[in-house]
């Protein structure tokens, strides 16, 4: 059951998107997120949806995986949509009036736009992690943030912390599984009872899990010191990130499309 989480998962492949420089991917993703909120009318968001669908096609990631990754945030989407529906007031007459609840046409328009935005936001950022290995991702973040080290921010250390955290997710999931089985064998009831009982039942799992996480951290620190790890200063890399013509080409194509989405703000004002 805990293995079913797909957000932040990596799907290895060899598409153009998989091979794109991770720094470029991060920057373009961020631009895309900003754009989602800049685009103020349905035409812009429709174009953004088409663009993202196209990118998923190129990356060869099946639709059901997107659906699966959206499932856990469904409550947030519903919550946002409902809030917008009820609390946006417009100039025209309300469409529905039930006591204190008034729904305006502007409210519906805004709720739908907001819902689509959140879905695109998750799907867009998921595409980044689907096509980029965690190691490449942290590498890219480290490089992108490197100017901040001039301000004495521990950029390399932060990136290392992230890499280690990502690397240990599967290990800890496996560990949780083992501990759960061991306690189940001793008669633990994990999936029945009241909320309070269930939370109490988690204690015998969480304590051993923390103990083992600390032990692993200790061992890893020791192993790193044994191999003379001493932070980022003067450290060279096996794989140097280099921007190729291909990367720039993708960048230009995306920027043109982003521009087109932005332009819809001026041309389809009537919608």
């Amino acid at each position: 059951m805990i293995r079913d989480i797909t957000i932040g998962q990596h799907f290895p492949g060899n598409s153009v998107l998989h091979r794109l420089d991770p720094r470029m991917k991060i920057v373009l993703t961020m631009a895309y997120i900003v754009l989602l909120f800049v685009a103020a009318n349905p035409a812009g968001l429709a174009l953004a949806t088409v663009l993202l669908a196209g990118l998923y096609r190129v990356a060869k990631i099946p639709l059901r995986i997107i659906v699966k990754s959206l499932k856990p945030i469904l409550p947030i989407i519903v919550f946002t949509v409902v809030l917008n529906l009820f609390f946006i007031t417009g100039e025209s007459q309300p469409l529905v009036e039930l006591g204190f609840i008034k729904i305006y046409s502007e409210g519906i328009r805004y709720a739908v736009l907001m819902g689509v935005r959140i879905i695109l936001l998750i799907a867009g950022t998921s595409l980044l992690t689907y096509t980029t290995s965690p190691i490449a991702l942290t590498d890219a973040i480290e490089r992108l943030l490197s100017p901040l080290s001039k301000l004495h921010l521990p950029v390399h250390e932060l990136a290392m912390v992230m890499t280690i955290a990502l690397r240990f997710i599967p290990t800890l999931i496996e560990e949780t599984d083992k501990i759960m089985n061991a306690q189940k064998a001793r008669g633990a009831q994990l999936d029945s009872g009241t909320l309070q009982q269930r939370m109490k039942a988690m204690v015998p799992i969480l304590i051993p899990l923390f103990v083992s996480a600390f032990r692993r951290a200790d061992e890893l620190a020791m192993a790193m010191e044994c191999r003379c790890y001493r932070g980022g200063e003067g450290r060279t890399r096996l794989k140097q990130l280099r921007l190729t013509t291909n990367d720039w080409l993708c960048c230009v194509v995306c920027l043109v499309l982003f521009g087109a989405i932005w332009c819809t703000n001026f041309f389809f004002t009537g919608l």
Binding site: K178, A182, R186, V203, P204, S212
Partner: peptide, 24 residues
Amino acid sequence: FQYPEYQLFEETVEKDIAYGPINM
């Protein structure tokens, strides 16, 4: 299980041994 010492969690050994019987 293998390496069963990783399932220990209680404050005292006594309480930990009692976990199974209490569940019964």
